[in-house]
Design a protein around this nucleic acid. Structure first.
Length: 119
DNA sequence: GGGTTGACGAAGA
DNA sequence: TTCTTCGCCAACC
């Protein structure tokens, strides 16, 4: 029986960077948003915020990954162009009670969800 | 194999 | 204070 040891996720550190990004993104509660840098920082790569964005691009259109809840540090929907349609990202956020004006999330600081602080 | 790009962010001038 | 530059690392040309 030791042929295949159950590869349990003992530690997230063993996971790929992309998977870890998706894992955190899934934890974002509805009606809340976070930033790429916050996720990167939580993963221990504070300076790899770009990789988080790149990971979202690689996610494709996976519903498990609420990429629309991830914006840059300013609360601007910088990646909305990567979603289907022109303002799908904004509509998804507004659908959760988040007000978005001109690609800018209103009351961003209050809606901000810090994975390090919440987790 | 090397240079550029990218859904970012922090630090420096 | 704003503007510029660097870092980060994977993917693309």
């Amino acid at each position: 029986m030791g042929v295949k040891d159950e590869i349990d996720i003992e530690s997230e550190s063993e996971m790929n960077f992309f998977d870890r990004v998706y894992n955190v993104a899934r934890l974002i509660p509805h009606g809340r948003v976070t930033s790429y840098g916050a996720i990167a920082k939580h993963l221990g790569a504070a300076r790899s915020a770009r990789m988080v964005g790149w990971a979202m691009n690689a996610c494709g259109g996976r519903e498990d990954v609420p990429a629309h809840r991830v914006v840059n540090r300013k609360g601007v929907l910088t990646g909305k162009h990567h979603f289907q349609g022109t303002n799908l990202m904004q509509q998804l956020l507004e659908s959760e009670g988040i007000r978005v004006i001109d690609n800018q999330i209103q009351n961003f600081e209050s809606l901000f969800w810090d994975p390090m602080k919440e987790l």
